[in-house]
């Protein structure tokens, strides 16, 4: 099986360190998501794994073999690019078969594998077309087909869904995940979309400024964000961070906050009805607090209400470093009047 190990990898261009001492591992046949805002180094990390860029320092191994110095073709990987990188003058079939032709796979074998991949991705009717005659979703499928026909144990994906519309994106998300599990591929998937990461990943590597901010399973990164950055990046709307003094910042997710008669006195600023629930934005002093309330809430701007939450839903962060603090007792917060069930 092919697990991927990235050990103390850095990539510098002059004085800028795009990737700064990054380490993580992807278990075999798992889906690992590199998540972060644009410019955080996630795509560069992927390109380092692919061998399209050379590491400045550190070690990368795939399936136990050190591949740090190997060219891309010898790393036994496939890759899907954000722009799909389809060859515009070749038909869908020729695009998918490109790699097999390079490696001089016999014609019978090529035909067999093409038929299988085309059936798997629903491309049978499109094989004779050129990429320019396909929709964005179909082009995406062709790019996927070109990656999986290689039957490599590792597949790298660089923001593969960012050019698709919202509905298609949700569909492809499920499809890619199913495919990955069915074929038992080890997949590294780059995205800036936290909902994509949460819904697909076995493990999420959250990156910021070239460093790993947090590496954990999606449920853990949601339940126990390691830093304020992680807390704010995961979840929509992001976690409320309130400064109540004392060097500790208090975090509470909008879905854990309830509006009622007891708790922090806040003033409603706006409310946004989303169908299943309503996101109410309130002002607490000069700080902002959002609450996700089920159904259609009948609050209007200017209403005075109280915001409350249960002690176990509170997160504490160090005000100076932004790092999570588990040594703060939630009951102490209750005592000073910050928690209301």
């Amino acid at each position: 099986m092919s697990q991927i190990a990235v050990q103390n990898v850095s990539k510098a261009w002059g004085a800028t360190r795009a990737v700064d001492n990054v380490s993580f591992e992807a278990a075999a046949a798992s889906l690992l998501v590199l998540l972060g805002p644009s410019g955080c180094g996630k795509s560069t990390t992927l390109r380092l794994i692919a061998g399209l860029e050379q590491v400045s320092s550190g070690r990368i191994s795939i399936g136990g073999a050190d591949v740090t110095a190997l060219p891309p073709a010898q790393r036994r990987i496939a890759m899907v690019f954000q722009s799909y990188a389809l060859f515009p003058h070749l038909t869908v079939a020729e695009n998918i078969l490109f790699g097999l032709r390079v490696r001089k796979v016999p014609a019978a074998e090529r035909t067999r594998r093409l038929a299988r991949v085309a059936a798997l991705l629903g491309l049978d009717a499109l094989l004779a077309r050129k990429p320019s005659q396909l929709s964005g979703g179909q082009q995406q499928r062709v790019a996927l087909g070109r990656a999986i026909i290689a039957e490599t144990p590792v597949c790298l994906m660089d923001e593969p869904l960012s050019n698709l519309d919202a509905q298609l994106r949700a569909e492809m998300r499920r499809e890619i995940r199913t495919l990955q599990q069915k074929l038992g591929i080890t997949m590294v998937y780059v995205t800036h979309d936290q909902s994509e990461a949460m819904s697909m990943a076995d493990r999420v590597i959250l990156m910021r400024d070239g460093k790993v901010e947090q590496a954990a399973a999606p449920d853990e990164i949601y339940a126990r964000p390691a830093t304020i950055f992680a807390a704010k990046f995961i979840g929509t709307p992001p976690m409320n961070i309130l400064d109540t003094g004392g060097g500790v910042l208090l975090g509470v997710r909008p879905e854990d906050a309830a509006l009622g008669d007891a708790g922090l006195p806040v003033r409603v600023q706006s409310s946004e009805f989303l169908g299943a629930d309503t996101v109410v934005t309130c002002a607490y002093g000069n700080q902002s607090l959002t609450a996700r309330v089920p159904g259609k809430a009948a609050y209007r701007a200017g209403d005075a209400v109280h915001a409350g939450w249960r002690p176990e839903h509170l997160h504490f962060f160090d005000a100076a470093s932004g790092v999570r603090r588990d040594d703060v007792d939630a009951n102490a917060a209750t005592a000073i009047g910050l928690c209301f069930a």
Binding site: A50, G99, V102, R103
Partner: peptide, 14 residues
């Protein structure tokens, strides 16, 4: 010509 075409080909070993 997009440089990603060359990268895609390089990964395939062309």
């Amino acid at each position: 010509v997009s440089p990603q075409l060359a990268e895609a080909a390089a990964i395939e070993g062309a």
